[in-house]
Amino acid sequence: MSLFADCPLELPDAELRLLPGWVAAGEAGCWFDELVARTPWQQPQVFLHGRFYPVPRQVAWYGDAEARYRYSGLSHEPLPWTPLLAEIRRRVEAECGQPLNGVLLNYYRDGQDSMGWHSDDEPELGAHPLVASLSLGGARRFDLRRKGGSRIEHSLLLEHGSLLVMAGATQHHWQHQVAKTRQACAPRLNLTFRLIRSPA
């Protein structure tokens, strides 16, 4: 029986499970406040079309010592786990039923902070990566489209305290984004846990 048998998201070639209210609002709020205040945020630059551009959000990468991660041409050496992140990791691992040795924190300060279309399919994540995405703070829309396509085929509202688990062949067939919005939205913190199988 699949871990995702109760999945409410019926997308072909994907294993998705959304757990609204995975962590209680009060506890999630405490996590949000501590992580925003204590994380050494960075805003790295990426090289596109002959120019450097700052990524439109703030980021931090934590993990086991060997969990180096490379994406979008950027190499990340892991910061050591804090007590809070280690506890959140333990709970996410128990939910997902597998070890996770790194977490990417993305801080969306307002609606102009965003994440462009991509798949989490870097070689170091292995053939069928599991990515567990915990949302804290303001709700944002999460879009999915088929690789090679341009039409949004499904959208989710990722709310405070929700956990979205993507597994199986999802990253091979689908891309996702958090688009810019002109609508007023509160700051959002997203923690994406993953297993680095072969460090970059």
Rank of each mutant, 00 (worst) to 15 (best):
G50W: 05
F47E: 15
V59T: 14
V46E: 11
R51T: 13
Q43R: 15
F32C: 05
W41I: 02
F32E: 03
Q43N: 10
V55F: 01
A37G: 06
R38N: 12
D33A: 13
V59P: 07
R57K: 14
R51G: 07
E34Y: 07
Q45C: 10
F47K: 14
F32I: 05
R57A: 03
Q42Y: 05
L35T: 11
R51C: 02
F47G: 02
Q45I: 00
R57E: 10
V36W: 07
P44Y: 06
F32Q: 10
V55Q: 15
E34P: 03
R38H: 14
C30S: 13
F47A: 08
P56K: 04
L35Q: 07
Q58C: 08
P54C: 10
Q42S: 13
Q42P: 01
A37Q: 13
P44K: 06
R57M: 11
G26Y: 08
V36Q: 00
R51S: 14
Q58H: 12
W41Q: 08
E34C: 12
V55E: 15
Q43E: 14
V46K: 10
P44C: 04
W41P: 09
Q45Y: 05
E34K: 11
Q45H: 06
P54A: 09
V59E: 15
P56A: 03
V36D: 01
G50D: 05
Q58G: 01
L35S: 11
R38L: 05
V55R: 13
G29V: 04
V55Y: 07
F52E: 11
A28P: 06
F52L: 04
T39K: 03
